[in-house]
């Protein structure tokens, strides 16, 4: 097993290097030179600009610049924001827990409901239940997230606000303004529990519900469809027939024999979903004013704050690669043939 893990990690290195290359070139492809961006108004002073260029090392050949960039990156120095002057890495770490909390809940929702819908649809293939579940899934993954978010706000917040004001869900921020939690882990739910502030916990939870639902809809739909098709395929296998011939209860056949093998492609899909999930987080955070890295990056694009763009992309890509590694390891765990082969 260990050699399997090491092998997988080794394959990541070229990909990671490739990403650093892309991140590096972003700064150099953006129109306007970085020195002027940094100087702002002072950029009209030519001497100042030239000395800035020297200071930033921009007069060196590209390969040298890349080397500097790479070594700085590996030491954790990803530059500073042009707008806030704060180090990119620090800002990322500060804002990341919000996004992580959101995506975690979205993914949990997606897995629970996706697997559930998919299993039910597969077991009751052809029934009304099956067709409704799949219709729901189709709508779920055809819906533009940003629109779904706006509609959700319309129904669950404004709409409920008119009829059942107590149940109306909040749509902005992570927690009601009146709660002033000291950030320990950065995760509102955890922090509020740690500080035994139950009202704050409830507030944080209610703020999380709508965005997580909206973000998790697309992954849920994909997982539901994949689960169904994967289970239907596995149900045709010879070993499922053997399991039935052993007199096992149908539920055991489904859960122990079918689902276990059906999980393999589902896990692959889950790995592939991380990308769209993070992309969706960007949009969701925009709509719900969620202070995470998605919103941070979008604002950076509008403000041409390229160090954030560079650093953010690099970190997110590293994250995606890491998650894919975990998925591959999980894959190896689920499928003994991959481990040994």
């Amino acid at each position: 097993m260990l050699s399997f893990v090491l092998r997988k990690m080794g394959m990541l290195i070229p990909t990671f290097l490739g990403i650093t290359l892309i991140a590096f070139f972003i700064a150099h492809l953006i129109p306007g030179d970085p020195a002027s961006s940094m100087l702002g108004i002072l950029a009209s002073d030519e001497n100042l600009r030239l000395s800035m260029i020297r200071q930033l090392g921009l007069d060196q050949p590209l390969t040298v610049q890349y080397w500097h960039y790479l070594s700085a990156t590996l030491q954790g120095n990803l530059g500073s924001s042009l707008v806030s002057r704060e180090p990119v890495l620090a800002e990322f770490l500060r804002l990341f827990p919000a996004t992580l909390e959101l995506t975690f809940f979205a993914m949990t929702f997606a897995l629970l409901f996706g697997l559930g819908l998919g299993i039910v649809a597969a077991v009751k293939r052809g029934s009304l239940l099956d067709r409704s579940a799949m219709a729901l899934a189709l709508i779920g993954y055809s819906m533009p997230i940003y629109w779904w978010g706006l509609l959700a706000i319309l129904f669950f917040s404004i709409g409920l606000g008119d009829w059942l004001p107590d149940l109306a869900l909040p749509v902005s921020g992570r927690i009601a303004a009146e709660y002033d939690l000291t950030p320990i882990t950065g995760f509102m739910l955890v922090d509020s529990l740690l500080q035994a502030n139950h009202a704050a916990f409830r507030s944080a939870l209610s703020h999380l519900l709508l965005p997580a639902l909206v973000l998790g809809t697309f992954p849920m739909a994909v997982i539901a469809r994949m689960t169904r098709s994967s289970m239907l395929e596995v149900m045709r296998e010879d070993y499922v027939r053997t399991a039935r011939a052993k007199g096992l209860a149908p539920s055991r056949v489904m859960l122990v024999h079918v689902l276990r093998n059906a999980l393999v492609p589902i896990v692959t899909v889950v790995g592939l979903i991380v990308g769209p999930l993070l992309g969706g987080a960007v949009l969701t955070e925009s709509i719900f004013s969620w202070p995470g890295i998605g919103r941070w990056m979008i604002e950076a694009v509008w403000q041409r704050d390229y160090p954030i763009l560079q650093g953010g992309l690099l970190l997110i890509a590293a994250l995606v690669i890491f998650v894919n590694l975990l998925v591959e390891l999980l894959y190896g765990l689920l499928n003994p043939r991959i481990r040994h082969g």
């Binding site: 892309i22 990308g275 769209p276 999930l277 992309g279 960007v282 992309l313 997110i316 890509a317 995606v320």
Partner: peptide
């Protein structure tokens, strides 16, 4: 490398 970045990003 292209796939490592979420498509929207």
């Amino acid at each position: 490398v292209l796939l490592a970045l979420p498509s929207l990003l």
